Amino acid sequence: MKNPIFIWIIKLIVVVIFLQTLYFKFTASEESIFIFTTLGIEPYGRIGTGIVELLACVLLLFPRTMLVGALLGLGTITGAIVSHLFVLGISVKNDGGLLFILAIITFLCCLLLIYSQRSKIPDLLKLKI
């Protein structure tokens, strides 16, 4: 999986999905408030998640930090998927499961990005203090 165009397409899918949902988180849309209230973490969870997603977007755009951005994105979106499965349900406020589908797409794209950078994982684990 060394095709740089394919990697950029996957990165852009994640970034576009995260940035689109950030708009709703940071503008305190009714749906975002409902989700994070249901989870019991409104407003701090909504804003905190938004900041983490924004950081993941920035990290994904640079080759040196892409792996960290993908890991951060994967961790964040895993929380969203678990929330959908165990608390919110697949469909939130009659969205037909759109948010859940976007979460699954983001999860798979982050996994592909991590897989494409798997050779760098050992270096990431070496802490240089």
Rank of each mutant, 00 (worst) to 15 (best):
S83P: 09
V58N: 06
F24I: 00
T76W: 00
L108F: 15
V92M: 10
T76Q: 12
I17Q: 07
H84A: 04
M66D: 01
K11A: 09
R118Q: 09
A103I: 09
L125A: 13
I7T: 11
L108Q: 02
L113P: 12
F18Q: 04
L99P: 10
G69Q: 09
L39G: 12
T106I: 05
G40M: 13
T106L: 08
L54T: 02
Y23F: 13
I17W: 06
V16G: 13
Y115P: 04
G40W: 06
A70Q: 02
C110R: 01
M66R: 15
I13N: 01
I101L: 15
Q117Y: 08
I77Q: 12
G69A: 09
T78A: 11
L60Q: 01
G89M: 07
V68G: 09
R64H: 04
G69K: 08
I35K: 06
V92A: 13
L61T: 03
I90P: 12
A103P: 09
P43Q: 13
G48P: 14
V16R: 09
C57W: 00
D95S: 14
V16S: 15
T49Q: 13
I114L: 10
C57M: 08
L124W: 06
F26I: 05
L98H: 06
F36E: 00
K25W: 00
P122Y: 02
F34S: 11
T38G: 12
A103W: 00
Q117M: 13
G97I: 01
P43I: 01
K11E: 04
S32I: 00
L22C: 15
L19F: 08
K120D: 10
L60W: 03
G69H: 02
E30W: 01
I13C: 10
G96Y: 03
W8R: 14
